[in-house]
């Protein structure tokens, strides 16, 4: 018999919640260690960077489409500082590249 998708969804939800809620709930004090503080400061920038490259190159068959999208996202984010515009910029650039290249 097949396992119901609901079972999968609920198990996933429990694991996802536990992993997120434990540190923020249990770590109450300010961490004084300079290395740990620096690590936490740099961490979001590194993780989002490594999640973007190289994954963005494989959204279309031609890696150039993803590259064009990446450049468009960086330029719109740099000049507008707006999340929605940056997402739109990436989508439109990839659409244009996929149609033209």
């Amino acid at each position: 018999m097949n396992t119901s998708p609901w079972t999968y969804i609920l198990v996933m939800a429990a694991v996802s919640y536990a992993i997120r809620v434990l540190p923020v709930t249990l770590i109450r004090r300010q961490i004084k260690n300079r290395f740990v503080r620096s690590l936490f400061y740099y961490l979001p920038y590194v993780t989002l960077s490594v999640m973007t490259v190289p994954a963005i190159f494989s959204i279309a068959e031609d890696p150039a489409c993803g590259a064009v999208g990446l450049v468009a996202a960086i330029l719109t984010a740099w000049f507008t500082r707006n999340l929605f515009l940056s997402a739109c910029g990436a989508c439109l650039a990839v659409l244009a590249a996929a149609l033209l290249l």
Binding site: Y45, L70, W78, R81, N82, C91, A98
Partner: peptide
């Protein structure tokens, strides 16, 4: 082709979180 283009949205969002502070 539209689905492909939409899948770029998440990366545009990642970039928009990290690039402005890098300025």
């Amino acid at each position: 082709v539209v689905v492909t283009a939409l899948s770029a949205a998440i990366y545009g969002m990642f970039i928009a979180v990290i690039i402005p502070p890098a300025r």
